[in-house]
Design a protein around this nucleic acid. Sequence first.
DNA 1: CATAAAACATACTAATTGGTATTATCAGCA
DNA 2: TGCTGATAATACCAATTAGTATGTTTTATG
Lengths: 196, 196
Amino acid sequence: MKKAEATRLNILQKAFELIYEKGYQTTSIDDILLKTQVTKGAFYYHFKNKDEMGIAIINELLKPTLTNSFIEPLQNEENPLETIHNLIHHLLIDNDFLKVQHGCPVSNFTQEMASWNQDFNNALNEITQLWITTMTDIIEIGKRKGLIRYEVNANQVTMFVMSSYWGIRNFGKLDNDKLVYDTYLAELKYYLETLK
Amino acid sequence: MKKAEATRLNILQKAFELIYEKGYQTTSIDDILLKTQVTKGAFYYHFKNKDEMGIAIINELLKPTLTNSFIEPLQNEENPLETIHNLIHHLLIDNDFLKVQHGCPVSNFTQEMASWNQDFNNALNEITQLWITTMTDIIEIGKRKGLIRYEVNANQVTMFVMSSYWGIRNFGKLDNDKLVYDTYLAELKYYLETLK
DNA sequence: CATAAAACATACTAATTGGTATTATCAGCA
DNA sequence: TGCTGATAATACCAATTAGTATGTTTTATG
């Protein structure tokens, strides 16, 4: 990797960590410079302004990372309902990139930026749409395989599951205790069972 | 109402509107002064600092308002599952205090403030705990009345429903279209039916 | 090695931030 | 009416903000 590329990546990564912890608006460029040990000249060489960096974080960091941990695990079509439950369980309990006290990065960004910055909105929409279609697809597969009831509406189920996931991640911030995740996961499991 | 009281209330209300639209951190005191036509001297006579005002908004505005629209409608114990569905439906579709593009005020506050300001965390926790216990209670009542299956775990159901509600409100921000609410509500209805 | 462009460094700016110090006005009551 | 504390207005401040102007150093290439 070229040195310039490394600088850029360093900024994106450290900036993301700060933003994940404190939020986008409250993370100042000076904060980022302090953490990265990059100077202002270098920063503004790589990014036109703060928002362009924010978009880059979503497209170049979040998107690939989440494709790994949200999309790929869903591709296992053997038993879709089990796959979905395992994924959510993994995301909430095992994944140590995501912290309970900081919620879900995509959800955080959405809450803070969407609806008043169209660029962020678009970038975030791409990510979530990817998750939605992937999950919808394997539910349809499950239906064809006879593992999920015929009348089940795949899109509805997807939206319901994803909503509950975003919601419980936000609840986690209030409790700051993984115990709420257990409670949630138990009911999610029950709900998914009813779709068989 | 005394004039001073009116000033204070005016600040709380207008400040809340701004914060609901833009977020707490990005709403400056000068923004509030502009909108309320109150001077800085008056503002700091009524509030020690910005955070104290934020807490006051939660305790003196949000709490009573949400008690009205979130708690009281839940007290109807006739048919708990129907009551819950009607409440959520009402909150998402009919209630015009809550805007789709701005999400849920409590959820917003939680995402922005909890986990790095204990005072906000406590105030927000009080509100949500109130909702949780109320919903849990009527589910238990439903069980005793034979309207809900005996094995149903009331607390789990409550957490699941609330999570999904917070989540879909956040999704709404991305879509900025009440259509996602319809999709969500259909699946919520199905889920609640399975508890019978 | 010469040179140009790419990459970074330093010093600055204008605007905005939350907050304070000081002064002025008002309402109620002796 | 005159006084006192409650309420509000004005002017200020130091710190922080995103961003810029102008420079210096690296790096690649002929």
